[in-house]
């Protein structure tokens, strides 16, 4: 009987001692929790993309609650909805966030883009780009190995015929793919209206471009001349559409001999 008592007392004693120590320690070492920051973090989408300019969602929440920033509209993936919620919580002004989407500016699928070699290395654009600029003759084109696909937290990018394609419905414009693409092919454009986009970034001279890809921009200036709004410019042998000026008339797309310009339709 005595043996059992001692055993029970020992274990119970150690248990109580450890419990007491832990209780005291957790009071002494308590880390103050910022409740406003936690509430904001719950509103934020939680992708930790960093498009707000802070280190992840918790960083933005902490900056908002501590008053380091009063701008509620920095979260691209959250959009106006999240901005309004944060504004309500913090008593700040809500901001209008223009809904944006990422667009891959390359149309050079396997059947139209020439290849200078067969790449059999690691399936990573970053790696492939270091080996003579990748598999395609065009060193500006999409490598189609999907670094952006694996990076996208919203699974909005797919590979389609060797070129990455963004699903505009799913894209939340966090900009992670923009930073990932070694060819800097991805851009964020507003998706609240129809806009023309030049799906090529080839800066080679027209003659070279024609040899490299059937749908490469040759910088012929036809679109620049057709556009009545001055939205299209050609720089370093490649056209570019300014989405702010574009009135979506579609004339540039019709005039393009290489069919590089596409009218991007976004559902509202």
């Amino acid at each position: 009987m005595n043996a059992i008592l001692i055993a029970v007392a020992t274990v119970a004693g150690i248990g109580i001692l450890a419990g007491l120590l832990l209780a005291i320690l957790s009071k002494v070492m308590a880390v103050p929790v910022d409740e406003t920051a936690q509430a904001i973090e719950e509103i934020l989408p939680g992708a930790n993309c960093g498009s707000c300019g802070f280190s992840g969602c918790s960083g933005y929440a902490a900056a908002l609650s501590s008053g380091k920033t009063t701008e509620t509209g920095l979260c691209n993936p959250g959009g106006s909805e999240v901005s309004a919620k944060i504004a309500e919580l913090m008593g700040l002004a809500a901001a209008d966030v223009t809904p944006m989407t990422a667009v891959v500016l390359c149309n050079g699928t396997e059947d139209v883009a020439e290849r200078k070699m067969v790449y059999e290395g690691v399936a990573s654009c970053k790696m492939a780009a270091q080996l003579f600029g990748g598999e395609k003759s065009c060193i500006y084109g999409c490598l189609g190995l999907g670094d952006c696909v694996s990076r996208c937290p919203y699974h909005a990018i797919k590979l389609c015929g060797g070129v990455a394609v963004v699903d505009y419905e799913l894209c939340r414009a966090c900009g992670m793919c923009v930073a990932t693409c070694p060819k800097k092919l991805i851009e964020l454009i507003p998706k609240n209206k129809v806009s023309a986009a030049v799906l090529c970034k080839n800066r080679d001279k027209g003659v070279l471009t024609m040899k490299e890809c059937k749908v490469g921009c040759i910088g012929c200036m036809k679109c620049v001349k057709t556009c009545e709004y001055g939205a299209v410019t050609v720089e370093s042998n490649v056209a570019h559409v300014d989405p702010d000026k574009c009135a979506a008339c579609g004339k540039c797309a019709d005039s393009c001999p290489k069919h590089v310009i596409e009218m991007l339709q976004f559902k509202a």
Binding site: A3, I6, A7, T10, V11, A18, L21, L22, L25, M29
Partner: peptide
């Protein structure tokens, strides 16, 4: 106290408490 048979359970108890303390301090 002739309680060697309690070794495992007592040691686990102590280790668990220690880890919790380390966790609180690290946090």
């Amino acid at each position: 106290h002739d309680l060697v048979y309690l070794q495992t359970i007592v040691f686990i108890l102590v280790i668990a408490a220690l880890v919790q303390m380390v966790e609180i301090v690290l946090k």
